[in-house]
């Protein structure tokens, strides 16, 4: 849910249910790296509520668009992390010396 003003789209608070520091802190990081963002922060109003408020103030672009771009960027970063990780695991497995490998695992 977005809390913003009708006249000024450059600053908004996004209230996200069922999320915590995991998403909010990552998104805050990505938003802070965006040159269009003037201010960004998040809070969890009550530790018993499953809810975070993410505040975004921009230098001119609509806050909602900037927020969506940040989430999109985070997704792209995740895809890249998975790709890099897959490659690293494949490299590691192919370079592993033969004696370390469990060659009998299929003949138990």
């Amino acid at each position: 849910m977005e809390h913003g003003s009708v006249t000024d789209s450059t600053s908004s608070t996004f209230s996200i249910m069922e999320e915590d520091h995991t998403l909010a802190n990552s998104v805050r990081f990505v938003l802070n790296q965006d040159p269009r963002v003037a201010f960004c922060g998040y809070s969890i109003p009550h530790p018993a509520d499953k809810k975070v408020n993410i505040r975004v103030q921009t230098t001119g672009d609509p806050a909602k668009d900037v927020m969506k771009d940040a989430l999109q960027d985070l997704m792209v970063m995740g895809q890249h992390v998975r790709g890099t990780f897959d490659k690293a695991v494949a490299d590691f497995k192919s370079n592993m010396p033969a004696e370390q490998m469990d060659v009998d695992s299929n003949h138990q």
Binding site: T22, L23, Q72, M75, G78, V81
Partner: peptide
């Protein structure tokens, strides 16, 4: 990592 991506997608 997939779960983090799913969270972004949901929002």
């Amino acid at each position: 990592v997939k779960i983090l991506e799913e969270k972004c997608e949901r929002v």
